[in-house]
């Protein structure tokens, strides 16, 4: 039993888990980009003057915020092919779409509230300089709002990283998947397997943690007027 806790076992485990890093990272990047895009589209639509557009995006946001990622992932995985008879292609895409839509909904609230929190005086100053509503958004409101958004985007990207572990449940070969495969053959190694997996995820999270801290500093700087 003792060799279970020896360091040498890590050299056995780490290369196995390493095989899953590619999938974890590719899902992370793709779903994060998808979520960012959704967040700006939905966030701006919710601020639009168009009633229907506002209600529709509101429905999307509440739907995805009101249910959990795991439910959405399984629903897309099992139910969409049944309901619509369409195949979303690969499980990789299902993972990316589920995670992207879910966190896009959360992030759209960040976008919306950041834009709303730019002070009224900024709108007025831009109007006094005769900017059009597009110019006002593009040069004055948006750049300030983005600075305010950055820390939350950092935090949610870490959430997205954590969320990627769910794709192992629909058979994608990510870090956790290879961990589970190894555990099923050598149960006694499982403490080290899962610990190593957690460390893998933590290493992936570290740059995001530091970027988030940096973003917090930027956001603080841009806020004073």
């Amino acid at each position: 039993m003792k060799e279970v806790l020896t360091i040498s076992a890590i050299f056995e485990i780490a290369p196995q888990l390493w095989r899953g890093v590619q999938i974890t990272v590719s899902i992370l990047i793709a779903s994060a980009l998808f979520a960012y895009a959704m967040s700006f589209i939905a966030g701006l639509c919710r601020l639009s003057n168009n009633f229907l557009l506002r209600k529709l995006t509101g429905f999307y946001v509440e739907l995805f915020r009101g249910t959990s990622l795991i439910v959405q992932l399984f629903w897309l995985y099992y139910a969409v092919p049944m309901l619509f008879g369409i195949n979303l292609g690969s499980n990789w895409w299902i993972g990316v779409i589920a995670i992207g839509l879910n966190y896009g909904a959360y992030l759209s609230e960040v976008v919306r509230s950041s834009i709303l929190s730019v002070s009224q005086g900024q709108y007025e100053a831009a109007t006094a300089l005769n900017m059009s509503s597009f110019q006002r958004m593009r040069f004055i409101i948006f750049p300030q709002a983005v600075r305010m958004m950055l820390p939350e985007f950092g935090n949610y990207t870490i959430q997205i990283l954590k969320g990627t572990s769910l794709v192992s449940l629909i058979g994608l070969t990510d870090i956790l998947y290879y961990g589970d495969v190894m555990r099923s053959t050598s149960l006694s190694l499982s403490p080290l397997i899962y610990l190593t997996a957690l460390i893998f995820y933590f290493i992936l999270a570290l740059p995001l943690i530091f970027l988030t801290r940096k973003a917090e500093k930027i956001a603080k700087k841009g806020a004073a007027s």
């Binding site: 900024q122 100053a125 006094a128 300030q144």
Partner: peptide, 12 residues
């Protein structure tokens, strides 16, 4: 043109 009580400079 207008100058405001609270300046309303663009902080960024």
């Amino acid at each position: 043109g207008m100058v405001f009580q609270h300046f309303n400079l663009f902080p960024h």
